[in-house]
């Protein structure tokens, strides 16, 4: 049986443009993400002890620095928040313009964005880095230790 299409019957199927447009958008999205990965994600931050030591962590540049907020160092004066950030026994003083809010507290890991100016890290953005530990909130334990993160760190 001859099943070849009749020449007098042109195909009425319109070209499917949606998948082609979608694939183009996916290509553009992929390029944007890879670009962001190469410029931002690979070296997301420097540790406190690497400032001025490791390549890419020079004091003269804007940095993202990771460390732990030292216990009993947190002070709020006016619109500024002062604290000491420590990593591998190295510490720096941090001044943040504003209230970090959220779950920011003592003994918690943070990534501060800013610059080293006269030995103090002046930050205008702080991100809290949560640990992979999850524990029940215990009011008594929190009161005795002063900070939830410190009580978790102390076990």
């Amino acid at each position: 049986m001859d099943l070849t299409p009749r020449p007098s019957e042109p195909s009425k199927k319109p070209r499917k443009w949606l998948p082609i447009i979608l694939l183009s958008l996916v290509g553009v999205g992929g390029i944007v993400i890879v670009t962001q990965f190469l410029t931002s994600a690979i070296d997301y931050y420097c540790n406190v002890d690497e400032i001025g030591v490791r390549s890419g962590c020079e004091e003269s540049t804007r940095l993202r620095v990771q460390g732990t907020v030292e216990q009993n160092s947190l002070q709020k004066t006016g619109s500024k928040t002062n604290f000491v950030m420590t990593f591998n026994d190295k510490s720096i003083n941090v001044v943040y313009s504003g209230d970090p809010g959220g779950v920011f507290q003592e003994c918690i890991s943070v990534v501060a964005h800013g610059r080293m100016i006269d030995g103090t890290f002046e930050s205008n953005r702080i991100e809290v880095k949560h640990s992979n530990e999850y524990a029940e909130k215990n009011a008594d334990r929190i009161e005795s230790s002063g900070s939830a993160a410190c009580s978790q760190a102390q076990g």
Binding site: S40, F104, K129
Partner: peptide, 15 residues
């Protein structure tokens, strides 16, 4: 709620 930002270009989120 935790970091203070909806999105970060960090390795896990980016990948």
């Amino acid at each position: 709620l935790t970091w203070g930002e909806f999105w970060q270009w960090d390795p896990r989120l980016t990948t």
